[in-house]
């Protein structure tokens, strides 16, 4: 294994809280190993800042294995940085070279207000789920797991949609700040399963209404969300949501 190191210039968005204006600040980090993850490079920067008495850069992160969806960061013009199908925590410094300047911004969308520096508030996603992203089954009500066979393809497709980690990269990438990919992943996950059938109409109508209320934009099918999604959630989920929406509104009561 090679052990090359690099020196980098970082242009990082700093913002004290949601009520203050932010600005870019320049930092330099040295002797960064190509083996490091992007967040480990930020750990190095923060150690440096703590020692010099400056406040470290706040950023969201938790599992650091690409599954919790907590890390964000818009790196050099792409959510989660240059690699495909990847989260920021799994981006490694091999992706950069000595002397690079890296611009790091928070997710930008009015529905995701900045909390501090690179952290944003994504609770709007939780509220979209609250609007209908579930199957109403109380604990203890279930029949045997094998009582309801499910076509393998439907189960696989449903799983592929359920892989969404709720990171918000789709919103960050979308020119309209639309949350359609996120929401359609949930709608598809549940619509593809027979268990999700009883609530399918109310689910899609309520979730769309909530998404609009949260201040996300409309989808114009540009595909930027799909291209940046760390879990490669397919754009076809959005089309499926549209179909669900259309058929639900055609049979609506009022």
């Amino acid at each position: 294994m090679e052990h090359n190191t690099m020196n980098l210039n970082l242009k990082v968005w700093r913002q004290k809280n949601n009520n203050t204006k932010g600005e870019f600040k320049l930092y330099r980090v040295e002797n960064i190993s190509a083996e490091m993850s992007f967040l480990e490079m930020f750990d190095v920067l923060n150690e440096q800042l703590v020692v010099t008495g400056e406040e470290p850069v706040a950023f969201d992160h938790d599992c650091r294995e690409g599954i919790c969806g907590m890390c964000s960061m818009y790196i050099n013009g792409k959510p989660h940085g240059p690699w495909q199908a990847n989260t920021t925590c799994q981006l490694h410094m091999r992706a950069f070279k000595d002397g690079d300047t890296i611009v790091v911004e928070p997710w930008r969308a009015n529905a995701f207000p900045v909390v501090k520096d690179l952290m944003v508030d994504r609770s709007a996603f939780d509220r979209i789920i609250q609007a209908g992203g579930y199957i109403s089954v109380n604990t203890g009500n279930a029949v045997d797991g094998n009582a309801l066979p499910i076509n393998k393809k439907d189960a696989d497709d449903s799983f592929a949609a359920a892989m969404c980690i709720g990171c918000g990269a789709c919103v960050a990438a979308c020119k309209n700040s639309s949350a359609m990919l996120f929401m359609s992943a949930k709608v598809s996950h549940l619509a593809l399963l027979p268990q999700g059938d009883p609530e399918r109409n109310s689910r899609v109508l309520n979730m769309v209404a909530q998404m609009d209320k949260e201040g996300f934009g409309a989808c114009t099918n540009t595909g930027a969300c799909e291209a940046t999604c760390p879990k490669e959630i397919s754009l076809s989920n959005i089309a499926r949501l549209n179909q669900e929406y259309l058929s639900a509104s055609l049979v609506a009561d009022k």
């Binding site: 045997d144 797991g145 499910i150 393998k152 189960a155 399963l193």
Partner: peptide, 12 residues
């Protein structure tokens, strides 16, 4: 059983 009812997409 509970998880299947909730729509957890287990492998099939």
């Amino acid at each position: 059983d509970q998880c299947v009812a909730q729509g957890v997409p287990f492998a099939r």
